[in-house]
Simulated assay, not measured.
Amino acid sequence: MPIAVGVIETQGFPTVLAAADAMVKAGRVTLVVYDRAESGRQFVAVRGPVSEVQRAVAAGIEAGNQLPGEGKVITHYIVPNPPENIETVLPINFTEASLPFQV
């Protein structure tokens, strides 16, 4: 079964928190990375079966965009079956911290 990766980039921490919360509650996915980009942007990535990642990312976008204030979802992307070389180079692999929660 292909393990997809879904990423959401937001403006502001409350927005990324709302998106991450909605993502892990909406689908059978594992949060694998959260990090800060530039200019107050944040991103969060989840891994799981393709259909679950699609559902999770949709829920994360909706939750992030519903927050009042200046935060918003800037962009998102889903990779259905990332090749091994992408998993090696980019921080989307399961880590020791995320392994206990792997679905």
Rank of each mutant, 00 (worst) to 15 (best):
E96L: 15
A37R: 14
G48T: 08
S51I: 02
P2R: 11
V53H: 08
G69R: 07
L90R: 11
Y34G: 13
A58E: 08
G6W: 04
E84M: 13
Y34A: 11
I78Y: 00
V73F: 03
A20T: 13
P91S: 00
D21S: 02
Q11F: 06
S39Y: 08
E52L: 06
L31T: 12
V57T: 03
Q11C: 05
A97Y: 04
L17K: 12
P100A: 04
L90Q: 10
A45T: 01
V53P: 06
G69S: 05
P49M: 02
E96V: 14
K25Q: 07
I8Y: 00
G60D: 11
N65Q: 03
N81A: 15
E9M: 06
D35H: 12
A58I: 00
D35L: 15
R36Y: 09
R36C: 06
Y34S: 15
A56C: 01
G71W: 12
S39P: 14
A26P: 06
V33I: 13
L17P: 05
I86R: 11
L17C: 14
Q66P: 07
R41T: 13
R28N: 12
L17Y: 03
R41G: 08
Q42E: 11
P82F: 10
V33Q: 15
I86N: 02
P49A: 00
D21R: 00
I92T: 01
V50N: 01
L67P: 07
R41Q: 12
L67C: 04
E87W: 11
G64E: 03
Q54S: 02
Y34C: 10
R41V: 08
E52P: 03
G60A: 07
A22Y: 02
K25H: 10
P68I: 15
Y77T: 10
G27M: 01
G12M: 09
G27Y: 01
V16D: 09
A19G: 14
V46W: 00
A97E: 12
A20P: 02
N93S: 14
V16M: 08
E62F: 11
Y77R: 09
E84T: 15
P100H: 02
P49C: 01
A63Q: 10
K72V: 10
A56F: 05
P68G: 05
R47F: 04
F101T: 04
K72W: 00
A97V: 05
V29D: 00
G71F: 03
G6P: 03
I92K: 10
R36Q: 08
A26T: 09
I61F: 03
A37G: 14
S39Q: 08
A18T: 09
F43M: 08
T88M: 09
P83I: 15
K72Q: 00
P80S: 15
P100C: 05
G60K: 03
A20D: 06
A4C: 05
